[in-house]
Amino acid sequence: MKFFSYKTFLVLGLLLVASVSAQEAQKEKLQRMIDAALDVIYSDTHTTLSANEKQAQVREKLESSYDLDVMIRYAIGKNWRRMNEREQIEVLELVKQLVLKAYMIGLDGKDRPSITLGELTQIGRARIEIESTMVLDAKTYYILYRLRQMDSGWQIYDIVAENVSVSSNYRGQIDDHFRKGSGADLIARLKNLLAEDEINEDTKI
């Protein structure tokens, strides 16, 4: 009976504390990443950069903190198996470019948003949610970041803006696509999308 002695409880308690503080550290990491990305777009020192250069720098900042492939793989779901290895790599890259482009265009011509992180909630084994509010053009939006502990560390796998989950939205689109189309069709569609709305090099955000 002595097995579950105070030492055991002490060890379990320490593990719990370590786990909670590791999760809290994710909040700080997320805030740093958001600030760094917004600095690239809005800082006075970056005014000479073109929209494409800014996009490249934003990508660098995001990728230095998180593996963007995780969110894209989660959005693709089981459709991943319907593509060959070459298609998988190309789709990952093209979706990444598309999402980044949408992010940049979404902020085009607007003042720097103010983003405040709120409560962190554990939503399951190795999963957390971080609430946030974004004030953009005097309007407040509620955004939720969902993170999961992967082999590569804590990674963002979903962003829920005003109740709309980005991963779920893309999953629905990709599911619909693969009902009739192939991996090659998806690549062609993504390339068309990127070419259609190429960011104007002269655009200054």
Partner: peptide
């Protein structure tokens, strides 16, 4: 501009 299938995206976004 950011949708693979704008119809599907709008349907999912609206429902959510």
């Amino acid at each position: 501009g950011s949708s693979i299938d704008p119809y599907s995206s709008l349907r999912s976004g609206y429902a959510q």
